[in-house]
Design a protein around this nucleic acid. Structure first.
Lengths: 342, 342
DNA sequence: TTGAAAGCGCTAACAG
DNA sequence: CTGTTAGCGCTTTCAA
């Protein structure tokens, strides 16, 4: 009877025995490290196939000091933004033969003494940090350890040399507001921001202000509403703004999720979009095109950004090098919500 | 100078040394296995904290034969369904202190001989299999190995005793169509299906047929349209159906994503919803409530299902037991798309 | 081109 | 309550 019992996995020893070679050779074949005779290689692969062997990840990791896994840290899983982002990250990860570990940080958990680092040197070869999901302190700790990291949609704290991937937010917003003013004649444009810490929101606001300034329109702080990159807060913020009484003829929501909330608020107040108030967003998430009216927005390559973050991270892991900053271009998408004919 | 160099991690030995105990004791403290004196425990936690120690996952896994990781296999990441599902799974995973590994199977990859099992005994303690993302053969292989698995939104192949979690699809659809017929007076109701292999779609269709039968309405195969649980195919299918010329007064889309596509097709054909044709869906994904008109649908507890799958899986891993079948109840959500006043 | 053997950092008996 | 020690299944020198 074979040494491989019914419910226990084949090991590299089984493969070696079956192929009539040493485990070192099996290892060489699998990892394509070192020269192995053609005939031997074939015998080894045959043995692997017939035993349905897959190497034990932990054993490999322990011996090689590589986990072949990358981690993704985010606050939580929500909104329409998340799905394309993860799609890009997963695709990139798989393309390079890495596994993907996911961790959300949004709930603190209990208080007893514990091992605090969900993702790090002990279980992955590198991590992607989305937004503000990891504290600057923790980032610094990993940086000190020279642990490979890539930041997604945020820049490094202090001036740490950590690569990051994001969008051309400012120029995208600038194009959008320029269009609103130049082509559509709006001048009293409200800005619905994202959450306060968000860099995406910050730069979009900068693009908005820059456009106003370029058109000699004074920035009006009363036309600022605080949202949170989600529908509910967007709706609440615009309801508030409406109550304030400061007149405006257009709303620029810092992202499409909040634009959807804004649209509800506007409709609820009996206002027509775009006849009474124009509405534009940022991101071009999937629902934007089937809203009523369809939403004018700036298309951000969310999926590409995710994939690019993986590329940079893998490069960092494998070569120690990566680009410091990658800002992906955006595209103006004109639809009816800003008064365009189509 | 300390043995812990700048950029290399602290190990259990460092902790033991620092706390003045053996590594066995450190291990006991961390894993809460075996009795350790209060004072010792404190010293150990202190050492852990001051060294910023986290146990090497691979070493733990190798020694304990547990990875503390569960895997999720899916075809691809898309649609509005995915986000709440993953949220539930991630939350469940974290609640039990497990890590989450994600893998998509939708692209084949290259042809050279390779290690074929992305997720399995070698890198996780159990897996959640979504839909048809894993072949029956592979499922059988893992079953033979007695590897813990839970199926999400599909039942086991053959009659393997693998636990699965899903929705009460049939009764949900039944309620919905009953309502359409009894309260709204529709009788020529088209069914827009999901992809052919989908059990969710199958049982929703069964509920639909059951309702028709209960109302003495003959099932009309010409009122069947083949979609794919996504917007594009839903739209195409309804356009087709319209061209066929068979009259109908309502459409039941097997999921909300295709309902959104159906809505586009209907509008494009100049039909008003619900005045000319009523439209209903299934799932109650986020956009459903802000469609124009808002979509009548059946709310499926997507996030809860994900969380429940994790619960069952962990129970299977830890106790060897889990419930064979969990079908979560659904709820009728009435909105304007079926002609309701509000 | 191949094999032998020394760990990788932990857990889990076993002994005390 | 605590320490000693034998592996877990691999990768990786080092020799041959």
């Amino acid at each position: 009877m074979s040494k491989i019992s019914e419910n226990s996995r084949a090991t590299i020893d089984d493969v070696a025995e079956r192929a009539g070679v040493s485990i070192a050779t099996v290892s060489r074949v699998i990892n394509k490290t070192g020269q192995v005779a053609e005939a031997t290689t074939i015998r080894v692969w045959d043995a692997i196939a017939s035993l349905d062997y897959s190497p034990h990840a932990a054993a490999r990791g322990l011996a090689s000091r590589r986990t072949n896994t990358i981690g993704l840290i985010l606050q939580d899983i929500s909104g329409e933004f998340f799905s394309p982002m993860l799609r890009g990250i997963e695709a990139g990860t798989r393309e390079y033969g890495f596994d993907l570990l996911i961790h959300c940080t949004h709930v603190a958990g209990n208080d007893e003494p514990r091992l605090s680092h969900p993702l790090g040197e002990h279980n992955s070869d590198g991590i992607i940090i989305f937004n503000e999901s990891l504290s600057p302190n923790e980032i610094r700790r990993l940086y000190r350890l020279q642990f490979p990291m890539v930041l997604l949609h945020r820049s490094p704290p202090d001036g740490l040399g950590i690569p990051y991937v994001g969008f051309e937010n400012k120029s995208g917003a600038r194009k959008l507001i320029d269009y609103l003013i130049d082509e559509r004649g709006y001048r009293r444009i409200a800005f619905l921001s994202g959450p306060s810490g968000s860099e995406d929101s910050h730069w979009r606001e900068m693009g908005y202000r820059e456009s106003l300034a370029a058109h000699n329109i004074e920035f009006n702080p009363d036309l600022l509403a605080m949202g949170g990159f989600n529908e509910a807060q967007g709706q609440a913020a615009i309801s508030q703004l409406l109550k304030r009484g400061e007149p405006f003829d257009a709303v620029f929501a810092a992202d499409d999720d909040s634009a959807i909330g804004a649209l509800s608020a506007l409709k609820e107040a009996g206002l027509r979009v775009p006849e009474d108030i124009a509405l534009v967003g940022f991101d071009d998430i999937r629902p934007s095109h089937y809203l009523t009216p369809p939403l004018t927005t700036v298309r951000a390559p969310i999926e590409t950004a995710g994939r690019e973050a993986v590329r940079q991270l893998i490069s960092l892991i494998q070569t120690g090098k990566a680009e410091r900053e990658i800002l992906l271009p955006t595209e103006l998408i004109i639809r009816r919500s800003c008064g365009a004919s189509e």
